[in-house]
């Protein structure tokens, strides 16, 4: 069973297999993740999708992410006849987060180009969700873009921002204007670390508003590429005024969507086998 998440920045694949040797028991616990893989999306997501699936032959595929519509095409063009379904990122993230942390009540996902907040009922059912609007404000793209102002790789940007203090308030929600604000703060002699901190703070403020709009409940699972950023994590805890144990971060935060898709494939497979 494969779940594939085609995001704007990267493609993730999670494969889950049923480990019961006799083929008789298909209890949930009998399934395991056996493969995880990640590729950049690049400008040719179709090719990347082909590559990521090249040597793997799942019996069922569930796609998610903004490019979810591509997968069926790619798989069927390659002559394979396995069922391919798609689900939205909302459902995928909810499933993934609930699997990793069954007690989760709110999922926050900050990915390359969008941010979403999802409120879950105790059993994992999606109750409400919010996504950012058309622009990239408050997403991973914002950090990537502003990191370039500091001539810095985005992976190091969070640690750099943690060195800041007395962060200036960055008012602009717009990525381009925020860059302008940052540049003019630099010209005024503000410490770069503090400006970086201010930029992180502006995302976190926005994110917390979104979380409150969906009716924030704890614990929160924080997924998506931006969950790697230590500064965002720290600021998020501070802004929420929540103890650390209520903000749960998966070991592979980027894999959460693909995992959810694989879990959906697994569920569909079990339904199909039961029906048979």
């Amino acid at each position: 069973m494969a779940g594939i998440d085609i995001g704007s920045r990267s493609i993730e694949l999670v494969v889950r297999e049923s480990v019961a040797a006799d083929g008789a028991t298909y209890a949930c616990g009998a399934w395991q993740t056996t493969l995880q893989r990640r590729l950049p999306t690049t400008f040719d997501p179709v090719q990347q999708c082909r590559s990521i699936l090249a040597d793997c032959m799942p019996d069922r595929i569930v796609a998610t992410g903004y490019g979810r519509g591509l997968v069926a095409e790619v798989v069927h063009a390659s002559g394979r006849t396995v069922p391919v379904e798609s689900i939205t990122e909302i459902r995928a993230h909810a499933l993934g987060a609930h699997h990793l942390f069954p007690e989760v009540r709110t999922v926050l996902d900050i990915g390359g180009q969008d941010t979403k907040a999802i409120q879950l009922a105790p059993g994992g059912k999606v109750m409400r969700f919010e996504m950012n609007d058309r622009c990239a404000a408050g997403t991973g793209k914002f950090l990537e873009y502003t990191a370039t102002v500091f001539q810095m790789d985005v992976a190091a940007f969070g640690a750099f921002a943690l060195l800041g203090s007395n962060a200036p308030v960055i008012n602009s929600m717009c990525t381009v204007f925020a860059e302008t604000e940052a540049t003019s703060l630099m010209a005024q002699g503000e410490r770069p670390e503090s400006i970086a901190l201010g930029l992180h703070q502006s995302i976190v403020r926005r994110t917390v508003n979104m979380l409150r709009r969906v009716g924030l409940e704890y614990p929160v699972v924080f997924a998506g590429g931006v969950a790697h950023n230590p500064c965002i994590r720290q600021l998020l805890l501070r802004e929420l005024d929540a103890p650390q144990e209520l903000l749960l971060i998966p070991d592979d935060p980027d894999m959460c969507g693909a995992l959810g898709a694989a879990l959906w494939a697994q569920q569909k497979e079990m339904e199909a086998r039961h029906a048979a």
Binding site: T88, I90, R91, K125, V126, R134
Partner: peptide, 17 residues
């Protein structure tokens, strides 16, 4: 028409919900 893809995701997610 520029937001059609985003609308699709939201609406599909709402339908799933």
């Amino acid at each position: 028409m520029e937001d059609v893809e985003q609308l699709k995701t939201r609406i599909e997610a709402f339908v799933e919900m």
